[in-house]
Simulated assay, not measured.
Amino acid sequence: MSDFGADTPAQRLEIADDKDVVRVRQAVRVAAVAAKLPLVDQTKLVTAASELARNTLIHGGGGYATVAGVHNGRRAGVRADFVDEGPGIADLGLAFTDGYTTGSGLGLGLSGSRRLVDEFEIDTKPGGGTRVSVTKWAR
């Protein structure tokens, strides 16, 4: 696996099947350990990344993730981006409602992921795909 230090170049991981979701989860865990995130925060970040990678696959038709160690001058962290060229999200407000799902899941993917990380950004447009960026900082 890659060595993730602060401000490392992003590792790009394709997301085309379930095995790729596992690879993304593993890469995020390696980066979280390298950033010295506490175990609880490692678990939160890996859980969010797993949900977002699965969304990229299921709702976006596949895409890619990038994972990188980052530093803001005071502390280290991990940033993960999830990008697809799928149908986009027509109603973000509805998509962030706990329990809302367009599939067979629990409807906690986006809203749950947002609660698990320190920074959460989403850019989506109907017909234009979706990009979700999450960051978790060491305490």
Rank of each mutant, 00 (worst) to 15 (best):
L94A: 15
E85W: 05
D98I: 06
Y100N: 01
L57V: 01
G103T: 15
G73W: 10
K19G: 13
V21M: 06
G112E: 03
G5S: 13
T130F: 11
D18E: 14
A10S: 15
D84A: 06
Y100Q: 07
K136W: 06
V117Y: 13
L52Q: 01
R29F: 10
Q11G: 00
D91F: 09
P126I: 02
L108Q: 12
L45A: 06
R74F: 11
A35D: 06
R75A: 14
P87Y: 14
A80G: 03
V24I: 15
D81C: 12
A10M: 07
G88D: 08
E121W: 07
G128Y: 11
A95P: 00
P126M: 04
N55D: 12
A90S: 10
A49W: 04
R23M: 09
G62M: 03
V40T: 03
L37A: 05
Q42F: 08
L92H: 10
G103R: 12
G69M: 05
R114Y: 11
K36Q: 14
Y64L: 04
V83S: 02
V46K: 14
T101F: 10
H59I: 00
E121T: 14
D91N: 14
M1L: 13
G109K: 03
S113D: 07
D18Y: 05
D3V: 13
F120V: 04
K19F: 09
I89A: 12
G127R: 02
K136H: 11
A48C: 10
T43Y: 08
R74S: 12
D91I: 07
D41P: 04
G60D: 08
D7A: 14
D17Y: 09
R79T: 12
G60Q: 08
G63P: 06
I15K: 01
G109W: 13
V30L: 08
P87K: 13
A27R: 00
D81E: 15
W137S: 07
V33T: 15
P38Y: 02
V67M: 00
E119A: 05
E119T: 07
R29V: 12
A49C: 03
